[in-house]
Nucleic acid binder design. Structure first.
Lengths: 152, 152
DNA sequence: CTAGAAACTAGAGTCGGGTCTAGATCAAGA
DNA sequence: TCTTGATCTAGACCCGACTCTAGTTTCTAG
C-alpha cells in the first residue's frame, strides 16, 4: 500500500527530483511521511493530489498559488470563501486562455489555408512574411483575410 | 511614418528592452534599420509582425521556433513545405492545449459546484483536501463526482 | 546653454520551475 | 561479500524570457 518515491515518480509522471522539490515547496497537502530509515512513503491519495496538481499547473496555475490553496485547506474550516474564490479565479483564467487560444487557432487556420493555396500555385513566398508588406494585400484581395489584423 | 522604439513599445505592449532583446534574438523578419545617429526605426509592418509574434508566443510557441520560422522565410522560396509544417505543428499544439484546458475546466466547474454546495451546508472542509481521503467518497456519494479521477 | 527625456551598448540579474551533482546510506541479490 | 541500485541531503546549476544597470550619447524645450 505504501509507495516509494520512485513508484510515485513513475506513476505521476513527475521526476523524483520534482517530487522532492514539490515537497520542499510545500505542495503536498498531507506532509510526506518517512520510513524509519528516512525514506519517503506515499499513498494513493498523494497520487490523486498530484494528478490534480499537474492539471492545475498545466492549466497555468503557479506553484505559489497551489501552495496558497493548500495553506488554506491546511488552516481548516473557516476560509471556504477564500478557497472558492481562488478556484473561481483560476476557472476564469482558464476560460480566458481558451478564448484566446481559440482566436489564435482561427487566425492560424485561416493563414495556413491561404498559405496552402499559394503553395499550390507556387507563389507562397510572400505570405506571413513581413519583409513583403504586400502579403496582407494579396491575401486580402484573394480571400478577405485580415481587415484588421491586430486582434490581440 | 517612421516609429521610434518607444512608440513601438507603447503600441505593441512590449518593453523597449524586450524589443531590443527580440532584435538580438533574430525575431524581426526585416532587420531593424537605423537612423544615421544609430537609433532604430520601425514601421507599421513591424507592428503587424509583432502582433503575430505576440499571438504565437502567448499560444506557447517558443522564441526559438519563431526564429526558425523567420529563418525559413528569410531563405526565400523553396522551403514552403517546412514552413507549412511548422505552422501546422503549432496548430495541432494549440488544439491540444484547448482540449486539455477544456477538460480541466470541466473538472474545475464540477468541483467548484460541489464545493459551493458543501459550503452552503457548512461541511466543506473535506473537499479537495487530500488529507481527508473521504473527500472523494463524500463527493461521490452526494453527486457522482469522480468515478476515476485520474483523467489526465 | 543647459536640463531632462530618450536612446544606445554590453552585460549582469531575476524569476519560475525544475534538474543535476556529490557524497553518504541502505537493501537485496549473485 | 560485493556490487548494484534506490534513496537521502544540501546546494549548485540550467533554461527561457525577459528586465535592469551603468555609462554614454543625442534630441528637444526653455
Amino acid at each position: 500500500m505504501d509507495l516509494s518515491i520512485g513508484e510515485v515518480a513513475e506513476r505521476s509522471g513527475l521526476s523524483v527530483h520534482a517530487l522532492r522539490f514539490y515537497e520542499r515547496e510545500g505542495l503536498f497537502a498531507n506532509p510526506v511521511r518517512r520510513l524509519s530509515n528516512g525514506r519517503r512513503i506515499y499513498h494513493e491519495e498523494d497520487l490523486e493530489w498530484l494528478a490534480i496538481c499537474t492539471r492545475l499547473r498545466s492549466s497555468g496555475m503557479s506553484l505559489a498559488t497551489i501552495r496558497q490553496y493548500i495553506e488554506l485547506v491546511g488552516q481548516g474550516p473557516g476560509n471556504e470563501h477564500e478557497r472558492l474564490e481562488l478556484l473561481r479565479r483560476h476557472e476564469n483564467h482558464v476560460e480566458a486562455q481558451i478564448r484566446e487560444l481559440q482566436e489564435t487557432l482561427d487566425v492560424m487556420r485561416h493563414k495556413v489555408r491561404i498559405y496552402e493555396d499559394h503553395v499550390v500555385r507556387g507563389e507562397a513566398d510572400r505570405l506571413w512574411n513581413p519583409s513583403h508588406p504586400d502579403a496582407a494585400a494579396r491575401a486580402t484581395t484573394h480571400q478577405e483575410c485580415h481587415p484588421s489584423e491586430g486582434g490581440t
